[in-house]
Amino acid sequence: MVTRLVLLVLEVVFVLALLLGVGLWSVPAALVLAGVLGVVAVERTLAGLPGKGPGREPVRAVRAAGVPGESGRSPD
């Protein structure tokens, strides 16, 4: 059975091979691609964490906390 760790290692190897190939063609393009892939990797990791990140808290909890301006009425 293939574990998540093995799949992660394979993914990293393929991404590094892609970056090396692009780097042989154009170093600036490889740096930009590495930056974009780094952001994607961080977002994927944060999406897998329970209860972390923006948009994870229900709207009802924000309204129940009495946050000003969230009631839908204009302030007097």
Rank of each mutant, 00 (worst) to 15 (best):
M1C: 05
M1V: 15
V2N: 14
V2G: 12
T3N: 03
R4E: 11
L5G: 07
V6W: 00
V6H: 09
V6Q: 12
L7P: 03
L8S: 14
L10D: 07
L10Y: 00
E11N: 15
E11C: 09
V12Q: 08
V12C: 10
V12M: 13
V13P: 04
V13G: 00
F14W: 09
F14V: 15
V15E: 10
V15L: 13
V15D: 06
L16F: 11
L16W: 04
A17N: 12
A17M: 07
L18P: 05
L18C: 01
L18V: 15
L20H: 11
G21C: 07
G21K: 03
V22N: 01
L24R: 15
L24M: 13
W25Q: 14
W25K: 15
S26G: 11
V27W: 09
V27R: 12
V27E: 06
V27A: 04
P28E: 09
A29T: 11
A29E: 04
A29W: 10
A29D: 12
A30I: 08
A30Q: 05
A30Y: 02
L31A: 15
L31T: 13
V32F: 08
L33C: 12
A34Q: 02
A34E: 02
A34R: 01
G35A: 03
V36M: 04
L37D: 03
V39P: 00
V40K: 07
A41M: 08
A41V: 08
V42K: 10
V42I: 15
V42G: 04
E43L: 14
E43P: 01
R44N: 06
T45D: 02
L46E: 11
A47R: 13
A47S: 12
A47W: 00
A47Q: 02
G48L: 03
P50F: 06
G51K: 02
G51Q: 08
G53E: 04
G53K: 00
P54Y: 01
P54T: 05
R56C: 01
R56F: 01
E57G: 03
E57T: 15
E57D: 12
P58K: 06
V59P: 00
R60F: 06
R60Y: 05
A61S: 08
A61I: 11
R63P: 04
R63A: 12
R63E: 07
A65G: 14
A65E: 09
A65H: 10
A65M: 08
G66H: 07
G66F: 02
V67M: 13
P68L: 06
G69C: 06
E70P: 02
E70Q: 12
S71H: 03
S71V: 07
S71C: 11
R73T: 11
S74Q: 09
S74D: 08
P75R: 13
P75C: 04
D76F: 09
D76E: 14
